[in-house]
Design a protein around this nucleic acid. Structure first.
Lengths: 243, 243
DNA sequence: CGGTGTCGGTACGGTAGCAGACAGACAGGA
DNA sequence: TCCTGTCTGTCTGCTACCGTACCGACACCG
């Protein structure tokens, strides 16, 4: 779709693809509302989604129904990663957590274009690694960090991927993401609020002091962001410049 | 190195590579002793290792020095995954946990051979996905399972990758892998021993009742093994047949 | 306006796992 | 043989987090 001018895209992968790669693809703009299911465990998907705004969550679920989030994806990336790794399916659920816009591409087309373009292969391979690194740091955080630190990490990761300071979601939802009890989220939010790092009200979290949040999260935040930037490059500023 | 007959290999990836792929590679057999460092965070490596026996651990470390294991690799796989994903380095440590044999290949050669062989690219891409899935289930386990269940999971994963029922390692070492306190490992081992699932003595764990261990681990074990088998195929039997 | 569902705050008892310390068992060397 | 280092078992608080339950606040709707 030649109408889509690469420089107008906000998705960091699409922007960094080699010139002309997109020319052969049908990029279809779509709006994804909250909790829209992008991918289900072991179900082949038709389309890959490259986000322009909004946030998607990747969640693993155990046979007994326990679950935790392993990655969040915004305009830094795409899903499903299995489309990049010669697999038809993966065992994850992906759904929209904050509604937004995306471009979608039929996976078969994406794979075909990819097989002809070594530079694009490299970019997507590095993105797959960036995602694996995110999984790894989530595993670490789940093992060693306290709830309030993990919450701070999570808010920071969302903040990186949204345009404003507001993130709209419920405690219930957060408790699923962090794999903790719902009331634990309430108290952890109060801790952050008490330190004036965020402002929180019904269904909404607002970042007040980003630097303070990073300090509070200590080593829970930062490493996998650095690794993303090393592998892919920085994400464009909010107005679409730079990058 | 034409001397290496593919059918005599035990490594599940090497065995499944397309005919002739290995012909262009210098596979060098090496013995890797316990705690040998295969890869360090952010350090480019010269060689990729395909294990024939023994077990390697992949560990993430936070800036403040906290750490946890995110994957274990035996003759089911290779390291480093970054060699397959167009990255020179990754933020992980990989080292031998149970000594063993491997074939190593210069990464530059591996990449060169790979770029000419689409089938091999597919196999390695699927392996990268299998590893990412292992990271994800580790994250889940760290979040929701109790120490004794995680220990059972870990013993099972080791057992899958060793020839006998014996696994030689100390509580100290296990505590690092599971990111828990060392005495917690002692008591968790006692739980498993009390249920006659394992036998444990100084520096040694012996599996007595594998089925019982799987039952004890509940949903902590199994999913990512299924996914590996779906993506790559079963691991050859211990005598090298089948597969 | 009152009804109903969703969401957030709080409380209480229970417990898994922590931090730190220490002592007994085993192994290998001098 | 003793000696030393490594490994394992155990103890005493202590606290973070859990399971469960309940109630108030808010928001939409007729």
């Amino acid at each position: 779709m030649e109408d889509v001018r690469q420089t107008m895209l906000r998705n960091n992968l699409l922007r960094r693809l080699p010139d002309g790669f997109l020319a052969g693809l049908r990029l279809e703009p779509v709006t994804l509302s909250r909790s829209f299911q992008l991918s289900s465990p072991h179900q082949p998907m038709d389309h890959a989604y490259f986000f322009e705004s909004g946030i998607a969550s990747v969640v693993v679920r155990s046979p007994e129904g326990q679950h935790t989030e392993i990655a969040i994806i915004g305009r830094d990336g795409m899903c499903p990663a299995s489309a990049l790794l010669d697999a038809d399916t993966d065992p994850f659920s992906v759904f929209m957590q904050v509604q937004g816009e995306a471009h979608r591409v039929p996976i078969s087309e994406l794979k075909a274009a990819l097989s002809e373009d070594r530079e694009a292969q490299g970019l997507f391979a590095r993105y797959a690694q960036a995602l694996a690194v995110q999984h790894a740091y989530t595993a670490l955080s789940n093992a060693v960090h306290h709830i309030d630190e993990r919450l701070a990490r999570w808010i920071l990761m969302c903040h990186d991927r949204t345009d404003g300071a507001e993130i709209s979601l419920t405690h219930e939802f957060l408790s699923i993401m962090l794999a903790v009890r719902r009331p634990s989220v309430t108290t952890a939010l109060h801790v952050l609020e008490g330190k004036k790092l965020i402002y929180s009200e019904r269904g909404l979290v607002i970042v007040r002091d980003r630097a303070g949040l990073e300090a509070f999260a200590r080593d829970a935040y930062g490493e996998c962001e650095k690794e993303y930037e090393r592998l892919i490059g920085p994400i464009a500023d909010r107005d679409g410049t730079a990058g």
